[in-house]
Design a protein around this nucleic acid. Structure first.
Length: 420
RNA sequence: GUGGGUGUAGCUCAGCUGGUCAGAGUGCCGGGUUGUGGCCCCGGAGGUCGAGGGUUCGAACCCCUUCACUCACCCCA
């Protein structure tokens, strides 16, 4: 019989990593809550139209990476490739804009993109997604970036590089786009086929191309920062200044355009050197026209996404990342096993991690097991201890052993474990 | 979607130009005297060498096909 394997690009998160997920998640919740963000949980499937309209028809994500299928009634559904669209949909659907002027939300969960898997890239991957609606003030750009950096370093990441840029607004970006197109038209021949296509579909993406000739061609192209209107210019310089006030260092990357069409003004990315080619752990930006684009009110927004798996891959190896057991009961003989069975289960109810072995293995084998389970204590007892009405408690680190009366055993043990 | 690399015990890998090549380390189980773990010593279990086909007297090793994993490109978290 052939064995059935997981789908390509879909990974099992094994217990040791699952534990890291849990820890990072709890840090995220703590940090985000402190900054006033509330968790929202949205479906992992949406109508395909939602993603087409938000992410952009000509983006790679929509063109070739979405898991889209027809439901039984022939409605087109898509497994979400990112969370922002869903969160905005929910924001609009529940009229959150009229409930309060500023809405701060975050969500954590799996995203799906049908790309070829490689290091730091999977077809199902998890993101921590943060969105803030209702304010365009540069303070909020700075604040949300500050929170992101605080969260990442708080999770244990080191050597992070923050890159920021401004992409302009609906007023000044088209002017810049036109300038880029005019520039590229003159030197089309030196561009790769992809970029020649991009001139018409998405000219700014040429900035992202790594083909050498394209890179050298685009190097002399006009820069977005020279085209910002005075409002955008002012906004960007304030963002920079607020970031500096908050002691966040950054580098300005005027060529960063990002792969989703909806960004306006501030765009940012956090890079690390620990991930191979996939060096972005987080990315985000402002999207002032998107909410209305999706049928909502004219409400500005800004947000970012953190790649969960990438974050975890950057975490330094932690020797303490081991599962622990509080007590292992080595019971010898049927009478002791019977008592032990009741004992461990009562201890578990009291919140202790307690284990025992139900076989008739030797004491040596059982202690070996206790060691394997990283147990703090081992409780040793057999017929002899039952006769004498006292058992032996061994501290597995120090090898100290003490005898404890069988009477009130459970309470004594809980006390000792808690004192440890 | 394109290109490179790799698929041998649970895990990490060795297997030279096809002829004891089915191995090591680690992990697992047991033992080193009667009820005490981690170190050390000894023993044991465990693999249709990714799958299918071909060449050959003979293939883990060569050829073809296929699948998977992996890295990179594209793009992104």
């Amino acid at each position: 019989m052939d064995k059935i394997t997981a789908i390509r690009g879909f990974k099992d998160v094994l217990p040791e990593d699952a534990r890291l997920f849990w820890e990072v998640e709890s840090i995220a919740r703590k940090v985000f809550n402190a900054f006033g963000f509330r968790e929202i949980r949205v479906p992992i499937m949406e109508k395909t139209e939602l993603f087409k309209r938000s992410i952009g028809e000509t983006t790679d994500i929509v063109e070739k990476e979405m898991y889209t299928f027809a439901d039984r009634d022939n409605e087109h559904l898509t497994l979400r490739p990112e969370a922002t669209a869903s969160v905005i949909r929910a924001y609009i659907e529940h009229n959150m804009s009229s409930a309060e002027p500023i809405t701060k939300l975050f969500t954590i969960g799996p995203m799906f993109r049908r790309e070829r898997p490689q290091k730091g890239r999977f077809r199902q991957f998890n993101q921590i997604d943060v969105e803030l609606f209702g304010e365009d003030k540069p303070q909020f750009d700075a604040e949300i970036i500050f929170m992101l950096m605080h969260f990442l370093t708080g999770s244990g990441l080191k050597d992070l590089e923050l890159e920021i840029n401004s992409l302009g607004c609906s007023g000044c970006r088209p002017v810049f786009s036109r300038a880029v197109i005019d520039f590229l038209k003159g030197s089309e021949k030196s561009l790769c086929p992809d970029c020649q296509r991009r001139i018409n579909t998405n000219p700014l993406r040429v900035f992202d191309c790594k083909v050498e000739t394209c890179a050298s061609t685009i190097a002399n192209a006009p820069g977005i920062l020279d085209f910002l209107c005075s409002d955008c210019e002012d906004h960007f310089s304030k963002v920079k200044s607020f970031l500096s006030d908050l002691n966040i260092s950054f580098i300005i990357n005027p060529r960063m355009v990002r792969g989703l069409d909806y960004y306006t003004r501030t765009a940012f990315e956090v890079k690390t050197n620990a991930l191979g080619a996939q060096n972005a752990v987080a990315g985000g930006g402002r999207y002032n026209g998107l909410v209305s684009e999706l049928g909502g009110p004219e409400v500005p927004g800004i947000g970012f996404a953190v790649g969960f798996e990438r974050l975890i891959a950057c975490l330094p190896e932690d020797a303490n990342n081991k599962f622990r057991t509080d007590l292992f009961v080595a019971a010898l003989g049927a009478p002791a096993q019977k008592i032990a069975f009741g004992l461990i289960n009562r201890l578990r109810i009291a919140g202790m991690a307690a284990e025992m072995d139900h076989t008739d293995k030797s004491l040596k084998a059982q202690l070996k097991r206790a060691d394997k389970l990283n147990s703090s204590f081992a409780l040793i007892f057999g017929d002899k201890e039952i006769d004498e009405k006292q058992v032996v408690l061994r501290n597995m680190q120090t090898k100290d052993q003490q005898t404890i009366p069988l009477d009130g055993l459970q309470e004594s043990i809980i006390k000792i474990i808690k004192e440890r």
